[in-house]
Design a protein around this nucleic acid. Sequence first.
DNA 1: CGTAGTCTTGACCTAGCTCAATCATAGTGG
DNA 2: CCACTATGATTGAGCTAGGTCAAGACTACG
Lengths: 231, 231
Amino acid sequence: MLQSRTEVVADYALQTQVAPRRVLARQPLQALETLGQQITVRRGKEIYAEGALADHCYKIVSGSVRLVKLMADGHRQICEFLVAGDLLGFEDEDDRYFAAEAVSDCVLMRYSRRSVDTLITEDNAFARHMRHLTAKGLEGAYKRMVLLCHKTAQERVAWFLLELSERTANDNDCIQLPMTRGDIADYLGMVIETVSRTLTQLKESGVISMQSVNRIKLVDRDALEDARGDL
Amino acid sequence: MLQSRTEVVADYALQTQVAPRRVLARQPLQALETLGQQITVRRGKEIYAEGALADHCYKIVSGSVRLVKLMADGHRQICEFLVAGDLLGFEDEDDRYFAAEAVSDCVLMRYSRRSVDTLITEDNAFARHMRHLTAKGLEGAYKRMVLLCHKTAQERVAWFLLELSERTANDNDCIQLPMTRGDIADYLGMVIETVSRTLTQLKESGVISMQSVNRIKLVDRDALEDARGDL
DNA sequence: CGTAGTCTTGACCTAGCTCAATCATAGTGG
DNA sequence: CCACTATGATTGAGCTAGGTCAAGACTACG
């Protein structure tokens, strides 16, 4: 299982290269390319800690990342999953509001906060692009808020699967889940058991099938979209 | 009651003038002052609609505003409450993701998107300040996410009351609720009845008292902070 | 005084949580 | 190659917080 989780990483990297929706976004980011150095982070390791000084920003080359907020009462909230191509830690704040952890083995580009700041003040297109990304991030957060307030377990899981299938290019409507059920639960505001039960329900109603525990085939995408409801 | 809701507006405006936490934020925004024109919006009226062209930005002079997302299934999500001093609609997007409505009668400063864009490219301090505000907004959204995922009705309402009391200066730990129970419910991901019940519970346990239906006194702030839990 | 909008309270019901047992899979060491 | 172990996933059996539905109560205002 660990093995398969690691393989996914390579997939993402490859697929993102050709995913058309990223091409547009790439242009203004070329200015970054020369500034960064490449680093790797092993599965489960922290990229940065909650409360740490925000001295670097990152771009995910391959692998996926979770943004984690840990509560005193032991609860864990996953604020966001990020995949290859996504930017990370560009919030304009002195210290991290949440931690970033590698869900699978990751290759990242790392940029110093200072050089990014300079780029933002000097390159208008880049600055505008960053503002746009932040706005999209905020929009996504509000969407999740609606999800967490008003949606049933089925709707949440359906939404999650569709979202993941859109964000990571995939062949034949087959998606790899690099994260555990626990991760999904903490992302969707549910418990592990409910995530598991909901997946089996979807499987039994023929909407999805599971080649392995973390390889899911979207058999009936229309039914899944119905199950998600509108957002 | 309508009367009292309207009175609050004037209070906010006055109090924000002297609230120390706003003073710092005001400096970089002075550049805006000359660009805007003042408008008023009556209680319940739309400032902008969901999906509308985002051609203006606003600053709240007095009154309060809700950001509303309406779902096809009839559910309504209030993404944010904004009070005097807050900025509104500065997201870098072509059309509005949610609608903005006046919770009470409002006085707003309105700026054309074009002039704000120019200011952002020309005034680095202003641009930085705007990035910082957006980052704070995102942080707030993630906090709400935690709230919606893991918190009980009591914790949500306690959090809401404390939040409101911090954001709107108030005398003697007394806060005015410009919004209805329905608004609060749609903000906290609950139903009207539960909001009402929770408020009575807090009242009966002596944590708060209610001078009128929308004027709440925080009798025991410590107990309220306990009820909120940590965030 | 009547009306309309808002708020409160009560009685019920259910989606999803908790607790607990079992199963599946990958990695390990002999 | 085969136990053995650890981690994760599934399934089952209750239980409860909060949602639903329905009936009143309060308040502002014409």
